[in-house]
Design a protein around this nucleic acid. Structure first.
Lengths: 219, 219
DNA sequence: ATTAACTATATTGTATACAATACAGAAATT
DNA sequence: AATTTCTGTATTGTATACAATATAGTTAAT
């Protein structure tokens, strides 16, 4: 959980970017709020320069929008955005599965298995925050195994955007166990290098996650 | 064709960003080249500040990568990236068609028809640069009609990345006319608000574009 | 009272100044 | 000769200074 400006990435700008992004996704800044460089800089005890650079990056991500000489305003992620992201993932994870299975090396495969084992452990233990973290790692390994820069870029950014709601939905009754079973099927298909099966179980997993999220209260 | 720093967007930073991005996509800077802030600033007759901000945005797009305290290096778009982008579009444009047909208003539909008419005109006339520009507009209207921020973001960025090769492939013998016919089918399906047909013809269009690009010389 | 012009202030945009870091090449040591 | 340490330089990272712009509030004109 990266917070504050004293830990995290390397440069100030990087840390500020991470923090602002997290704050926006956490709803600490709401859509329409204006971000004033000087104010943020003072709050974090830095100059405007790294704050500006972080904002420029948020702008490219469309998490904020900037009106020249006027100010920067939070866009954030809406419920609709999240639903769209799930629909998009449902389209794309089949492709991700195929490429990953074709291109994944043994090392990544073992990593995937390790993460699955840990997920099993923490699910049994009931530590769902830990499971959520492992879940992100699990899917990141798949994304990276596709060796596709464009695909990685989309899917890992999107995964980050929906992290909060994903974690919340994991806490719905029974979902953690169901999710675990789905991940097991994914690992199995990947180990067998069975592309058809891999596409099928991964897409089903996303579809189930999506249904689960859509059942969540809209708050 | 946005070039130089004297025209284009609003702020210096914006103009510099556009120019650097275009130069990278045009291959003026090649993968591995290092971008030195001071050098770029002098070339464009500005200070380092707006150059830095532009670079930070390119970094987020992964068109350059930055090693702290060391430098910024061009990543660019590889042939593999372009092929991946077509594969991704083939997955996603079906969704785009569905959403666009469901949500498109009459005004956008008429715009689409207008653009098609112009495409027809310029194709007959043989002005393929103009056709290429219209092509981008055509698909942008579809993306915007989906009213989906995540989908628009992906597809319009990707469209920009492949603009050069798309234009080149349009100049392959017979491709312009074939492409025109495909666009006509798309307009037709959209006018009829026929989702199944719209998905089919749009995905086929992408698939054909992709095959056409893959036939291109790799230079 | 309404509108227009002006002024003050807040904020962003850009340039410059200073600090920290990385690296290459020279000098010193073994 | 090989290795280490030093030192200078180029470059990035951050802070500050200055310029331009937008907006709100006030005054002036009708």
């Amino acid at each position: 959980m990266k917070r504050g400006v004293s830990q995290g990435g390397y440069s100030l700008r990087e840390k500020i970017f991470q923090k602002l992004r997290q704050d926006i996704l956490d709803g600490k800044y709401k859509a329409g709020d204006s971000l004033v460089e000087m104010k943020l800089a003072e709050e974090m005890g830095v100059s405007r320069t790294p704050v500006r650079e972080a904002i420029r990056q948020l702008e490219l991500e469309r998490l904020v929008s900037s009106i020249p000489n006027k100010g920067v305003f939070v866009e954030g992620i809406t419920r609709q955005d999240i639903e769209d992201i799930y629909a998009i993932r449902e389209c794309m994870e089949g492709l991700a599965a195929r490429w990953a299975i074709e291109r994944m090396d043994e090392k990544s495969l073992r990593e995937l298995e390790n993460i699955y084992d840990l997920m099993e452990f923490y699910t049994t233990k009931g530590d769902l925050d830990q499971v959520g973290e492992l879940n992100s790692q699990f899917h990141d390994i798949i994304f990276e195994s596709t060796k596709s820069k464009p695909l990685m870029q989309i899917l890992s950014d999107f995964q980050y955007y929906i992290e909060n709601i994903r974690l919340a939905s994991l806490k719905a009754p029974g979902r953690a166990m169901q999710s675990l079973i789905e991940h097991k099927a994914i690992v199995q298909a990947f180990k067998e290098r069975d592309i058809a099966k891999g596409e099928k179980v991964l897409v089903e997993h996303i579809s189930n996650s999506r249904l689960n999220v859509e059942k969540m209260p809209k708050a």
